[in-house]
C-alpha cells in the first residue's frame, strides 16, 4: 500500500510534529516525541482525514532499555485509502502518555488495556481502571519482567508428586 502520496504525507507530518520516518518491510512508521502525540492525533483526525483508529498498543523492550516502552498507533483514512503507523517512545519510569480518547472514542478501552497490561498511565483519561485482569491484581502481566506464570504439567512420571501439592476443591461439607 506504500505509495508516493503516503511518503509525501509522512514527510510533511514529520516536519510539522518534530518526528522521524523509519522504514521496515515496506511499512513506513512515523516516530513522534511523547508530547506531540495529542496535537498530532487531533490534526490527523481533523485535517488529514484519518477517521479510524485501527490499533493502539504498547511494546515493552525490557527494563534495561531506555526508552523502555513504545506506544504503537495505527490510523486509517477510509475515504483517503491510507494507513499511518505512529510510534511514540515512552520512558520506563512512571510512563505517561496523553490520552486520545477525546479524538478517537475507541482509544478508551485500548488505553485501558495498555494501562492494565503494561502499566502505562494516560493523562486525562476518563476511566483508567483495569479492564482485563481483576481489579485487585498486582503487577502488569505483559511487561517483560513479569513471569509467564508457568505451572509444571502433570505426566505419568511426576503424577503423584504433583498430586500431593495440587489443591483440589471439595463439595461443601467435605467428601
Amino acid at each position: 500500500m506504500m505509495n508516493e502520496q503516503e511518503s509525501k504525507l509522512l514527510d510533511i507530518l514529520a516536519g510539522r510534529f518534530n518526528g522521524q520516518v523509519t522504514v521496515f518491510a515496506g511499512e513506513e512508521t512515523l516516530v513522534l516525541p511523547v508530547d506531540e502525540i495529542a496535537p498530532a492525533a487531533q490534526a490527523f483526525h481533523d485535517e488529514f482525514g484519518f477517521d479510524l483508529l485501527s490499533s493502539l498498543t504498547t511494546v515493552d523492550y525490557g527494563p534495561e532499555v531506555d526508552p523502555r516502552f513504545h506506544m504503537v498507533y495505527r490510523f486509517t483514512s477510509i475515504a483517503g485509502h491510507l494507513s499511518l503507523n505512529v510510534r511514540v517512545p515512552v520512558p520506563g519510569l512512571s510512563p505517561e502518555v496523553p490520552t486520545l480518547e477525546n479524538v478517537y472514542h475507541n482509544a478508551n478501552w485500548n488505553e485501558r488495556e495498555s494501562f492494565d497490561l503494561f502499566g502505562i498511565k494516560f493523562s486525562g483519561h476518563s476511566d483508567l481502571r483495569r479492564i482485563l485482569m481483576p481489579q485487585d491484581w498486582e503487577g502488569h502481566p505483559l511487561r517483560k519482567d513479569y513471569p509467564l506464570g508457568y505451572e509444571e504439567p502433570q505426566f505419568t512420571f511426576n503424577y503423584d508428586e504433583i498430586d500431593v501439592r495440587k489443591p483440589y476443591a471439595y463439595r461443601r461439607g467435605g467428601k
Binding site: 513471569p147 509467564l148 506464570g149 505451572e151 483440589y168 476443591a169
Partner: peptide, 18 residues
C-alpha cells in the same frame, strides 16, 4: 489448563469445583 499454561488461566477447574 490445556495449551494455556500461563498467569491468566486456572490450571484445571478441579481447583475450584469438584
Amino acid at each position: 489448563g490445556g495449551v494455556f499454561n500461563n498467569y491468566a488461566v486456572v490450571q484445571g477447574v478441579d481447583e475450584v469445583v469438584p
